[in-house]
């Protein structure tokens, strides 16, 4: 029963998780522990690479001890150490990779470098039991519509400029919303109280989307109309979510129609937004499909997903030799050869 330790720190979350697979591959994977520590910045501020890396360095040993303790494992129980190779911010990525390498050398364990996006997808599939879904991967740095074909997760649609989470986070900064627990969560709460729909640009190009123009537009709206009192921050959050999520649902539906799939899997930090899940559900219902989503434990960046994807690769005989355990900021989802699926 192989056990993997996964370390994730590509953005402002530091996560360490321990997972155990069944030898036969029949029963679901066991999550032994899944610990996370988030670097939260003051309202109106984003997280900078240097400060984020410092946060990770400061708390990684503590998080590691907690993960080992909760899983009730000792170093000798662990078979493989998995870490995020990319994509992500350079400094936080490398700060975590250093720890992964040290552990591997100290405990004499093999390593597997994992693509962060693949981690999200594999964890989502494991938890929800979705077979071969269209994946909508939405987070602070990524917006992609993905489908599996011939040993790769292929990107059918994506953002042409900024990511959905980035758009939401930056708007939260304009409004001065708190970053605790996350800016997106606070936008969601504001949106629940919004009543008036303010029309915003709507930019879908085939299966691709674009958010930067919408952000500029709503920024100037906020500047002019909030002061004048003609709109409320709640209305703006509501309208922003309605517009952005409608675009996401539309491209997902288009991909479903194109590929002929009836399943959707939502992954990534923005995927835990209940409004998005609800809208996706309505779309699926209209076409007789099904939505799979997970909660914040697995949606938001975490170590367990890295352990999951890493262990899948490891079980096919894949290892990353020490000299290749570098990190990369740019690492496309479709660059990874998926040997563990047919």
């Amino acid at each position: 029963m192989p056990i993997a330790l996964g370390l994730e720190g590509s953005a402002n979350k530091l996560g360490i998780g321990i997972i155990q697979h069944d030898d036969t591959g029949k029963s679901p994977a066991k999550v032994l522990s899944n610990i996370r520590d988030t670097y939260i910045t003051p309202p109106g501020q984003g997280f900078l690479p240097r400060d984020t890396a410092q946060h990770h360095r400061d708390c990684i040993l503590q998080v590691l001890r907690k993960a080992m303790k909760e899983a009730n494992v000792t170093p000798k129980d662990i078979d493989v150490i998995c870490f995020t190779k990319g994509p992500g911010m350079g400094a936080p990525l490398t700060s975590v990779a250093v720890v992964a390498r040290t552990l591997a050398l100290m405990w004499n364990k093999p390593m597997v470098g994992v693509n962060h996006c693949i981690g999200h997808i594999e964890m989502g599939r494991e938890i929800t039991g979705a077979g071969n879904p269209i994946v909508l991967y939405v987070s602070g740095g990524n917006t992609q519509v993905i489908a599996y074909s011939q040993n790769r997760y292929r990107i059918f649609g994506e953002t042409l400029d900024i990511a959905i989470g980035n758009c939401l986070d930056r708007f939260a900064r304009i409004l001065g919303l708190s970053n605790d627990p996350s800016p997106g969560h606070n936008i969601e709460q504001y949106a629940k109280r919004g009543k008036n729909y303010v029309p915003l640009p709507y930019t879908v190009k085939g299966m691709d989307v674009s958010f930067s123009g919408i952000l500029s537009h709503i920024e100037s709206l906020a500047e002019e109309q909030l002061k004048a009192g003609t709109v409320t921050p709640e209305d703006l959050c509501y309208s922003l979510q309605e517009t952005l999520f409608a675009m996401l649902v539309e491209i997902t539906e288009r991909a479903m129609a194109h590929v002929g799939s009836q399943e959707v899997l939502l992954v990534g930090g923005v995927a835990c937004n209940e409004k998005l899940q609800e809208m996706m559900g309505q779309m699926a219902e209209q076409r007789g499909g099904k939505v799979f989503a997970t909660d914040e434990r697995f949606c938001i960046d975490n170590g367990i997903m890295i352990a999951q994807a890493g262990l899948l690769a490891y079980s096919t005989g894949y290892e990353t030799p020490l000299e290749k355990t570098t990190c990369t900021q740019r690492f496309r989802t479709d660059e990874v050869y998926v040997a563990w699926r047919e």
Partner: peptide, 13 residues
């Protein structure tokens, strides 16, 4: 240009 822009999209996790 558009191709390069698409490539950039893998910046963050």
């Amino acid at each position: 240009e558009v191709r390069l822009r698409g490539r950039k999209r893998s910046m963050l996790g």
